[in-house]
Design a binder for these strands. Structure first.
Length: 462
RNA sequence: GGCUGGGUAGCAAAGCGGUUAUGCAGGGGCCUGCAAAGCCUUAUAGACCGGUUCGACUCCGGUCCCAGCCUCCA
């Protein structure tokens, strides 16, 4: 039984699909004006784990993740780069897809873009104006009238008066109320614009998600997610817009992924401490990065630092070490492995609000079991190795060949290393251990580790 | 100030009202020419103060501290 923490109620709830035959989930995606950073990696992987689990438990899941391809930051960046907006956004969309593949993130079913969803936004804004919940200000911008939506604040547990009290003094005379937010803004000269019933302009940020989500998933769907920082105001405003326009519950369960910290500090541009995914990939492989992200619960803060990352790599190495050399596929043997309850416990962990740390700990139990059986009962060890890979696959790890994992990114060729191993074997046979150790040390200096086993010497990267 | 989370062993990170989390690092041992890997074994916890209970890291109350949101941000 799947339980999910719902921001709307601030508690874990049993997930009750609107239609068990078809689950709908919407996630707020990237604003594409730069390369993805590690914070993006975190929510991309988190929702990848979530949707993978949903897909195994329900016959059909529709995962929609939008792309914001028009906003101030994009416009400014295009001007800075002297680059066409669509060229800029396409470049970073392609880069995002590349990063996702490196992290083992599966594609969403639909990836709608704001600029391709303008008509749906018009439709919703019109509905809001007709109901008197939205109005056009003196400057032509269209605003949402927050006071006319009675449930405003229900997601983020805020009430309007507290918000007013805490608000920055923003004398925005075009609004009826300082808390009102923009649905459609008039274009300034030289800005990209679309014709609308209210004048040439472009959409406000929040309306695009309401429009795209309801267009692809209907007025009422199961799950909606994003980073915690989107809870207010973005998701709060999405609820106001969608429920205001459609007069029905927008989303049953709201999910929010915790923040990523950098060396225990908040990641921010002013501290200049943000890392792009591709930058980190120069030093760590994508799978280790993915493991690092899954090593804490998706709602907890996650601290990005070298120690934690190398820890993740070491941990993943232990799992690959367990399956190494046990690649043969044998469905019958997997059945044997099934008599242990690893898989049930693994699934139960994910059913408990996607508890990846527990799920991973079960993987280590299987690894230990394999190591114990390796000598005694190779058949069973092989079956357990298959089980380990299968469970790993459920969360997007352990899917590559162990030899590939152990030999990636090494500066010498296989032949060169094999040559060294032969030399060393000769030295060892002659009991010339000084020479033998020297060869091993030389390779170690190149991050190549030699291991003498009963079937000869094997090697792996550090 | 308001709202939401959180404070667990050397580090990271979970579950749980009474019995081993897990990974890395540390001690001892097995294996090895020596290592590495692996196995066995071992030490180190639950911010503080009260309360409930036969029994609390786990529930309740209070105190202190930390983080996030309240302004664009995953």
């Amino acid at each position: 039984m799947l339980k999910i923490y719902n921001t709307l109620t601030n508690q874990k709830e049993t997930f009750q699909p609107i239609n068990p035959e078809n689950i709908g989930i919407y996630v707020c995606g990237m604003t594409v004006y730069d390369y993805c950073h590690m914070g993006h990696a975190r929510f991309l992987v988190a929702f990848d784990v979530i949707t993978r689990h949903l897909r195994r438990n329900f016959p059909q899941v529709k995962y929609v993740r939008n792309i914001t391809d028009i906003d101030d930051k994009i416009i400014n960046r295009a001007i800075e780069n002297n680059e066409d907006i669509s060229t800029l956004t396409q470049r970073f969309i392609d880069a995002m897809h590349e990063d996702e593949r490196a992290l083992g993130v599966l594609e969403p079913d639909v990836e709608p873009r704001a600029t391709e969803s303008i008509d749906q936004m018009f439709y919703m804004i019109k509905a809001l104006i007709n109901k008197g919940i939205a109005y056009q200000g003196k400057n032509g911008d269209v605003y949402y009238s927050v006071r006319d939506f009675e449930n405003y604040g229900k997601l983020s547990s805020k009430n309007l008066d507290d918000l007013v009290a805490g608000a920055r003094v923003d004398v925005e005379s075009n609004k009826n109320d300082p808390l009102d937010f923009v649905l459609w803004k008039m274009a300034k000269p030289d800005e990209p614009k679309w014709q609308s019933p209210w004048g040439d302009g472009r959409p406000g940020w929040h309306i695009e998600c309401s429009a795209m989500a309801t267009h692809h998933l209907g007025n009422h769907f199961d799950l909606h997610g994003g980073g915690v920082d989107l809870t207010f105001p973005h998701h709060e405003n999405e609820i106001a817009q969608s429920e205001g326009a459609n007069d029905c519950t927008f989303v049953n369960t709201w999910m929010h992924v915790g923040f990523l910290k950098i060396n225990d500090e908040k990641m921010s541009k002013s501290l200049n401490n943000f890392f792009t995914i591709r930058g980190v990939l120069e030093k760590y492989d994508g799978e280790s990065l993915r493991y690092f992200i899954m090593s804490s619960h998706y709602r907890s803060p996650l601290n990005f630092c070298d120690e934690n990352l190398s820890n993740a790599k070491t941990a993943l190495t232990r799992l690959y070490t367990a399956v190494r050399g046990l690649n043969a596929s044998n469905p019958a043997m997997t059945q044997v492995a099934m008599r242990f309850d690893y898989e049930n416990r693994f699934n139960a962990a994910l059913d408990d609000d996607f508890n990846t740390p527990i799920a991973l700990s079960i993987l280590f139990e299987v690894a230990k079991h394999i190591n114990n059986e390796r000598e005694n009962d190779p058949g069973q060890a092989g079956a357990l190795a298959q089980l380990l890979r299968k469970l790993g696959g459920y969360i997007g790890i352990l899917e590559c060949d162990a030899e590939v994992f152990f030999k990636q990114g090494v500066s010498l060729s296989d032949a060169e290393i094999d040559g060294k191993i032969c030399q060393r074997d000769d030295a060892r046979a002659a009991k010339d251990f000084a020479m033998s150790d020297q060869i091993r040390d030389e390779l170690m200096a190149l991050d190549i580790i030699l291991e003498d086993g009963s079937n000869g010497t094997t090697w792996r990267r550090k």
